[in-house]
């Protein structure tokens, strides 16, 4: 699994490629997208595919990313392709046989599995939030307000800059009101910080749109099924983790 420091695909051993393929497939097995019994076959299938197109993969690599991460991205796409093609065969077999084979898979105690899954989801939320770029700090502050979570002064400072102190006072007022009141106060925050003239409804629509985008991205793996409530829990866990 040793990787050379020079960032080239050639320097990566076959053993490492197989390791990465195993890691990629395991993720989908863990999410029950790929049945456990198919794991080895899928690993072999994507490794074979990789070997067949290795020269093309190598030649199209420009060195902008790390070689191992690039291979993860390639194998991940190959794995998704296999899933698209094969998934209907996997789940058309006898239900009883399926149950038997799936019931003997788990080697992790349930609690460990649970905590792994939760920490995994918190990490995914952290990453999904990053995609909001310059709206990130604003989004976090507004989500904390909506979900009644304690504020992070750094996030308020990042969003409001020199107006952070006044915004903190406004947000404290928002915490004491109903949901409708919260959006009204948040609109005051937007108008004060961004020099706009918006109403509570506009803030509500904006925030709902962002929440939908987060949920959509988190749920795309085919196994997570988050909603606003679980998002609030993830935000709370994220705060506790930090």
């Amino acid at each position: 699994m040793r990787i050379h420091s020079n960032n080239s695909i050639e320097a990566i051993s076959m053993e490492t490629i197989v390791d990465i393929a195993g890691k990629v497939v395991s993720k989908y097995v863990f999410r029950s997208v790929i049945p456990h019994r198919e794991k080895e076959d899928v690993v072999m299938s994507i490794v074979e595919k990789f070997i067949r197109s290795r020269s093309k993969i190598e030649s199209s690599f420009e060195g902008k990313a790390k070689a191992t991460t690039y291979i993860v991205a390639i194998l991940n796409r190959m794995c998704c392709e296999v899933i698209r093609k094969e998934s209907r065969h996997w789940y058309s077999i006898d239900e009883e046989e399926l149950f038997k084979s799936e019931s003997n898979q788990s080697t992790l105690p349930i609690e460990a599995e649970k905590s792994y899954a939760i920490s995994n989801e918190v990490n995914r939320l952290n990453t999904a939030l990053l995609f909001f770029n310059e709206d990130l700090a604003k989004l976090k502050v507004f989500l904390r307000c909506l979900f009644d979570l304690p504020y992070n002064p750094e996030e308020i400072a990042e969003y409001a800059g020199s107006k952070a102190q006044q915004v903190t006072v406004l947000l404290d007022v928002a915490d004491q009101g109903s949901k409708g009141d919260k959006f009204e106060v948040l609109s005051k925050v937007v108008n004060f910080v961004e020099g706009k003239n918006v109403k509570g409804d506009a803030v509500r629509m904006w925030l709902n749109k962002q929440i939908d985008a987060i949920l959509n991205r988190l749920n795309r793996n085919g196994i997570s099924n988050h909603n606003k409530e679980s998002l609030a829990i993830l935000m709370e866990l994220q705060q506790a983790k930090n």
Binding site: K23, V72, N120, R220
Partner: peptide, 22 residues
Amino acid sequence: CDDCAAEVLSVTDIAIDFKADA
């Protein structure tokens, strides 16, 4: 783009795991 965002989420997840294991 939700598609690419979700793909980046997956790849990040796997790369972190792989790096830790490596």
